[in-house]
Simulated scan of single mutants.
Amino acid sequence: MTAGQADALQRLWAKWGLDIDGQRLIDPAELFGNDNPVYLEIGFGMGETTARMAAEDPTTNILAADVHTPGQGNLLNLADHNNLTNIRVANGDAIILLREMLPPSALQGLRVYFPDPWPKKRHHKRRLIQPEFLDLAATRLAPGAIVHCATDWEPYAEQMLDVLTAHPAFENTQEDGGFAPRPQFRPQTRFESQGLEKGHVVNDLLFRRVQHGDPPPTGA
Rank of each mutant, 00 (worst) to 15 (best):
Lys120Asn: 13
Leu76Tyr: 02
Ala90Phe: 01
Lys121Trp: 07
Ala137Pro: 02
Ala64Glu: 01
Ile62Pro: 00
Gly71Glu: 01
Trp118Cys: 04
His68Lys: 07
Asp80Ile: 00
Pro58Ala: 03
Val89Cys: 04
Ala137Asn: 09
Ile129Ala: 08
Gln72Tyr: 01
Val67Trp: 03
Lys120Cys: 07
Gln72Lys: 12
Ala64Phe: 02
Asn83Met: 06
Leu107Pro: 15
Phe133Val: 06
Gly109Asn: 14
Ile129Gln: 03
Thr60Ile: 14
Ile96Leu: 13
Thr139Arg: 12
Pro119Ala: 14
Leu63Ser: 05
Glu100Thr: 09
Ala65Met: 02
Pro104Asn: 08
Ala138Arg: 12
Pro104Ile: 01
Leu98Gln: 08
Ala94Tyr: 06
Pro119Cys: 12
Asn91Ile: 00
Gly92Ser: 06
Pro104Leu: 02
Ala79Ser: 05
Tyr113Glu: 10
Lys120Ser: 09
Arg122Tyr: 11
Leu128Thr: 14
Ala137Leu: 05
Gly109Asp: 13
Lys121Arg: 15
Arg127Trp: 14
Thr59Arg: 07
Asp80Asn: 07
Asn82Gly: 03
Asp66Trp: 03
Phe114Arg: 12
Val112Asn: 10
Thr139Asn: 14
Leu102Val: 09
Asp57Ser: 13
Leu97Arg: 12
Arg140Lys: 15
Arg122Cys: 12
Ala64Gln: 03
Pro70Phe: 02
Gln108His: 13
Ile62Arg: 11
Phe133Leu: 11
Ile62Cys: 01
Pro117Tyr: 04
Val112Glu: 05
Pro70Gln: 07
Leu97Asp: 11
Leu107Thr: 10
Ile129Gly: 02
Arg126Gly: 05
Pro117Asn: 13
Tyr113Lys: 06
Ile95Leu: 04
His124Thr: 11
Ile96Glu: 09
Leu78Trp: 06
Asp116Val: 12
Asn61Tyr: 01
Glu100Lys: 14
Ala94Met: 08
Phe133Glu: 13
Ile96Asn: 08
His124Ile: 10
Ala94Asp: 05
Asn86Ser: 05
Ala106Phe: 11
Asp135Met: 10
Met101Arg: 11
Leu102His: 11
Asp57Pro: 02
Trp118Asp: 06
Ile87Asn: 00
Leu134Ser: 07
Val89Asn: 00
Gly73Trp: 01
Thr139Trp: 07
Arg127Lys: 11
Leu76His: 01
His124Arg: 11
Asn86Glu: 02
His123Gly: 08
Asp135Leu: 09
Val112Gln: 13
Glu100Tyr: 08
Gly71Ser: 06
Asp116Thr: 14
Gln72Ser: 06
Arg99Lys: 14
Thr59Val: 03
Asn74Ala: 08
Ile87Gln: 00
Pro104His: 07
Leu102Asn: 08
Leu78Tyr: 07
Ser105Glu: 15
Ala106Ser: 15
Glu56Val: 02
Glu132Gln: 14
Pro117Asp: 09
Ile95Gln: 10
Ile129Pro: 01
Asn82Gln: 13
